[in-house]
């Protein structure tokens, strides 16, 4: 292969990648925008935590290292939270096989039985963690419920959503899938 041909091949590959990647990136950005997700100005590490789940097992954020995580804060007294939980479960069922995690942290101070009742009622199979002391909630600056953070596979914060969303929408699936390709 001549030098000229190699140069043309390189140009072709660069153009191909550009044409393939740019629309994908635009589509990802559009999905974030459509979902009303605020992106960070500077990507920072998600605050680490160690909480018990509803079965009494200790779960750390680090346990999900290498996977994109949808981290949701909710409470049983929060009606909008109740509205979005089923769509979160459907998202989990769709994407968990692709290595995408959904984790919900209940900030109920008491009545943990009620949390279990909700989990049973909505047939939630993704990890439900308990933060009765509100420590993790405060580290994540939660001022209203529901609030959701998107965390990349490298443990960095990638997005923030305040208020309820339909998490199993095509935009949400596109957005969560795109997180796999980030750090």
């Amino acid at each position: 292969m001549t030098k000229k041909r190699r140069f043309h091949l390189k140009i072709f590959i660069v153009l191909f990648l550009f044409c393939w990647m740019v629309p994908a990136a635009v589509a990802h950005m559009q999905a974030f925008e459509n979902m009303g997700i605020a992106k960070p100005r500077t990507e920072r590490e998600a605050p680490d935590f160690s909480l018990k789940d509803i079965n009494g097992n200790t779960v750390n954020l680090k346990d999900f290292q290498g996977k994109p995580v949808l981290l949701n804060f909710w409470a049983t007294w929060c009606e909008p939270c109740k509205e979005e939980l089923p769509s979160m479960q459907r998202l989990y069922e769709t994407l968990s096989s692709q290595g995408i995690e959904v984790v919900a942290i209940s900030i109920d101070r008491k009545n943990l039985d009620r949390v279990k009742k909700y989990v049973d009622e909505y047939k939630l199979t993704f990890p439900i963690l308990l933060d009765p002391d509100q420590k993790v909630r405060k580290h994540y600056y939660i001022m209203g419920l529901p609030t959701t953070y998107l965390i990349g596979p490298g443990g960095k914060l990638k997005g923030f959503a305040s208020g309820a969303r339909v998490w199993d929408s095509p935009d949400s699936i596109e957005m969560m899938t795109s997180l796999k390709e980030t750090s």
Partner: peptide, 15 residues
């Protein structure tokens, strides 16, 4: 209102 625009993402976490 927060119920119109949602809560602002926290600056402390890079937003």
């Amino acid at each position: 209102s927060r119920r119109y625009v949602g809560f602002k993402p926290p600056q402390e976490l890079g937003f």
